[in-house]
């Protein structure tokens, strides 16, 4: 009797979960003539990563139209979920995996050495995959696009806008490998230019306000890299830094529009789109992924946040574009 009840509950649960599948999933494309199946594993829902996925999907659909079927899965911020998702893609024998963010890429590389893998929103592939003497091409079944903005350019931007400043505070989340890498490089560049750099790292959004306050008190300028946690919490940074009259230079446009004065911006949509173009070449034109070098953002733009600049009384050179 008890076993029976347990069994019934189990079956009901399985069925109800199965019924949770969205309507979009019911198109059963196995008979609609889709030739290529592509799986996208994205680490977390977030403006920048969403834009990259959107760019990827747009590019693929533009190039291949109905011939491609794309399945997007989100790991909801848990690296462990990436493994489950990748396992599912590999089992479904997809033709290509797009891994959006570092842990997704690592899980994909662990999952298969045959299915082509394209990464995006990964800053440095050599670091992400533990490759010594990385030469720009991963080889094997892996390639992709990097979200690395020119860090020397960002250091130069700080010098251009704030030549008088002496102390630069570097605000970032210690849980993000990408941020740590950028902070290391930017510290080197800024030290060369004669600035004194101090890292201010926080572990999650709860201690961000405290760390940001301490950074604002002890710095003339604050630099924020392309950090997911900062991007999620620009409001906190803005509330601390604006009253303290400390300008923030950001690594990407989303952060700059929320709390920064200026950024040397790359577009995540563009790198996603570029990844989609690479995917189309691999799928339809038979390009060899093992010889494809990692691609970078096609263009960078100097942008500024008009509202904050005005409030802090910062004059911006003419070649900067205002963020809408």
């Amino acid at each position: 009797m008890k076993k029976l009840i347990t069994g019934i509950l189990l079956v009901v649960m399985m069925l109800s979960l199965a019924a949770c599948g969205g309507d979009t999933a019911d198109d059963d494309s196995s008979n609609t003539g889709a030739v290529y199946h592509v799986g996208v594993c994205q680490l977390v829902e977030h403006d920048a990563l969403d834009a990259a996925t959107e760019g990827f999907v747009d590019a693929l659909e533009e190039k291949l139209g109905d011939a491609v079927e794309i399945e997007v899965q989100l790991a909801q911020g848990e690296p462990n979920n990436c493994t489950t998702i990748i396992n599912n893609f590999v089992a479904g024998n997809v033709d290509l995996i797009m891994a959006n963010a570092t842990p997704a890429l690592q899980a994909a590389v662990s999952g298969t050495d045959t299915i082509p893998i394209l990464g995006t929103s990964v800053t440095e592939y050599g670091v992400a995959l533990g490759i010594d003497n990385f030469n720009g091409t991963v080889g094997g079944n892996v390639s992709g696009t990097s979200d690395l903005a020119p860090l020397d350019g960002q250091a130069a931007m700080i010098q251009e806008l704030f030549p008088e400043a002496k102390k630069v505070g570097l605000l970032y989340c210690s849980a993000e490998a990408n941020s740590q890498y950028q902070i290391d490089v930017v510290t080197e560049e800024l030290t060369k230019l004669g600035y004194e750099c101090t890292p201010y790292s926080f572990s999650d959004s709860n201690d961000l306000a405290t760390v940001a306050t301490s950074a604002a008190e002890n710095s003339d300028v604050i630099y924020v890299p392309t950090d997911n946690k900062c991007a999620d919490n620009t409001g906190i940074i803005d509330n601390v830094c604006r009253p303290a009259k400390v300008p923030v230079v950001a690594g990407e446009e989303g952060i700059a529009s929320g709390c920064g004065v200026a950024t040397l911006s790359i577009s995540y949509y563009d790198i996603g789109y570029q990844t989609g173009v690479m995917a189309a070449e691999i799928l339809a034109e038979g390009a060899d992924i093992s010889t494809m070098p990692i691609a970078y953002a096609p263009s960078v733009t100097k942008k500024y946040n008009a509202e904050i600049c005005q409030e802090l009384g910062i004059t911006i050179p003419d070649d900067y574009v205002a963020i809408d």
Binding site: L17, A18, G21, G22, E45, V72, L74, Q76, N87, N88
Partner: peptide, 22 residues
Amino acid sequence: VLQVVIWRGLDPQLLKLLSAII
């Protein structure tokens, strides 16, 4: 169960909610 859920192609934003329901 989680594999079935993902295979079934659920709305990916519901993953954590479904873990909690299980």
